[in-house]
Design a binder for these strands. Structure first.
Lengths: 139, 139
DNA sequence: GTACGTGCAAATATTTTGCAGCAGT
DNA sequence: ACTGCTGCAAAATATTTGCACGTAC
């Protein structure tokens, strides 16, 4: 007998976590999400947040961004898109430019394997930091 | 008075760590490097390995790859190049294809900031795993 | 000689997990 | 009712750091 595919239940916790993540354009940490969810569900645990973020990622409802810092950031937009990381203030911004999809096929041929998708991150200084307008400098 | 730029000493430890990393085409973890260095310098500490990897990265002698897993991998090749991550066996492979450098300028214009460099990672199945030749399946 | 670097060990930071009871389907 | 899911707390994982001594320059 083949193993049945895992059935995911839409629990209250899972729904609120997804709603919180969908409601922001930022790319928050697990802990920030935890604090947000706690405002409507004070007894939720951080472990539950992490477990749900993993499930939501597996279901391809969200993305996990694990570069640019020592911890993961989460992105409520599951559609493939690029990101920019500011080396000065650490902000992670969405880049709304067309994907460079033709590279996937080239890489697959080069390797003799299969390419499912790719990610691209740009590093530099965001507009505020570049112009000396950063929040830190206004203190 | 302006602060003098930090002077980095080339200690025995730093040199061996760099040599170990330069000698492999793999992308090892800090712990793997630690074990390698211990073979010639048994009393080195893991903290020293981490400190030196950070300095070498700042000096742009090596790269830190902090995506695709919960820990960092280190790359002795400091030249910009793309990587492929196998979702099945976890291997990280270099991709020898030209960089898509023209995007940096586009992103800078879009943001009104400055772009220093970008990274690109492809995800999929490597040749061995794709053809069912993976080491795991041979057990 | 100076101050950066090291070994050691403890601390930190982030994420995962065992378990007993709860709840979605 | 059947399993997946939760809260809690402890554990696991990866990396950083304080300190006294060592060493490259």
């Amino acid at each position: 007998m083949g193993k049945l595919p895992q059935i995911h239940r839409m629990t209250k916790q899972r729904k609120i976590i997804l709603d919180v993540l969908r409601a922001t354009k930022e790319h928050p940490t697990a802990d920030w999400i935890y604090e947000q969810v706690r405002q409507t569900m004070p007894r939720i645990s951080l472990g539950t947040v992490y477990r749900n973020l993993r499930v939501l990622k597996e279901m391809q409802d969200i993305q996990e961004l694990n570069y640019g810092s020592t911890y993961s950031l989460y992105d409520g937009n599951a559609e493939p898109h690029y990101h920019f990381v500011c080396k000065e203030c650490g902000a992670v911004l969405d880049i709304d430019l067309p994907l460079y999809s033709s590279y996937d096929q080239k890489v697959a041929e080069l390797l003799g394997g299969q390419v499912d998708f790719h990610r691209m991150e740009f590093y530099g200084s965001c507009a505020d930091c570049f112009s000396g307008n950063s929040k830190l400098m206004q203190i």
